[in-house]
């Protein structure tokens, strides 16, 4: 017998079942098909304005910085301002996301590098799939639009999130994923990001910038 058969047989022996019982199979199949939702915190709920306000407050609580701009056209200026004020080089890397590509970058003096990061970039820009109000969390999907390496290798990570994509809770992100990818399907990597990288492994002292970005700057776009 293979290890697989051994293990399944032992599980069934311990549970006192054969694996063929119809009610058990039905219960598991139903749960997978229906994905029932459990307890949903009230914190993230409310109208779009309340969700946006909660998202911002929670993201800041997780030590991200947050700026709000009126439209997509204002994003390049906001990123240029941040880089200038933080004395950072006016260069960044981003993927092929159409929403980012449509922004008027040429109005700034920013130099843009394209494609995945090889670990030598100081700044990276991504567009979020969604924002989650209840914990100020960003959801980012892998692929050529927003390569996952940009989420982790640059020192400073800028994430653009459109306010219409800010949802109440994680369950709403799962629903949004189902709409885009289909039931039971996922992007290769989905990153849920809440604040910049940190570690408390040395004497429980909280320090930012362990292996991932030292700074996370979120640019919320009101309409677009």
């Amino acid at each position: 017998m293979s290890a697989r058969d051994d293990i399944l047989a032992n599980i069934r022996a311990s549970l006192g079942v054969t694996g063929a019982e119809a009610p058990r199979r039905f219960a598991a199949k139903e749960r997978l098909a229906q994905s029932p939702e459990g307890v949903i915190p009230r914190r993230g709920q409310g109208d779009p304005a309340a969700r946006v306000a909660t998202f911002k407050a929670e993201a800041e609580r997780a030590q991200a910085s947050v700026a709000e701009v009126a439209g997509a056209a204002d994003v390049p200026n906001e990123i240029a301002r941040y880089l200038r004020e933080a004395n950072l080089p006016a260069t960044f890397r981003m993927g092929e996301d159409a929403r980012l590509a449509a922004m008027p970058w040429s109005e700034t003096a920013l130099e843009i590098l394209r494609g995945p990061s090889d670990g030598h970039d100081l700044n990276g820009v991504s567009a979020a799939f969604a924002g989650v109000a209840e914990s100020g969390t960003l959801a980012l999907c892998s692929g050529p639009d927003n390569p996952t390496t940009i989420n982790f290798l640059p020192d400073n990570h800028f994430v653009v999130v459109f306010e219409r994509d800010i949802v109440a809770d994680y369950e709403s992100v799962w629903r949004k994923l189902r709409e885009r990818y289909g039931k039971g399907a996922m992007p290769r990597t989905l990153n849920l990001i809440t604040g910049p990288s940190r570690s408390a492994d040395i004497e429980q002292t909280l320090l930012l910038g362990a292996h991932g970005p030292r700074r996370l700057h979120i640019v919320m776009v009101r309409d677009g």
């Binding site: 929670e58 609580r61 997780a62 993927g95 494609g115 995945p116 209840e134 914990s135 969390t137 892998s142 692929g143 050529p144 390569p147 996952t148 390496t149 996922m186 992007p187 290769r188 990597t189 989905l190 990153n191 849920l192 990001i193 809440t194 604040g195 910049p196 990288s197 940190r198 408390a200 991932g212």
Partner: peptide, 23 residues
């Protein structure tokens, strides 16, 4: 740790897909 969410919750599904630049 008393955080609402850890900083990185990462969901990985299978290997790199056609067209993926990393993974």
């Amino acid at each position: 740790t008393g955080q609402d969410m850890s900083v990185y919750t990462t969901l990985s599904t299978g290997p790199r897909r056609p067209g993926d630049p990393d993974g």
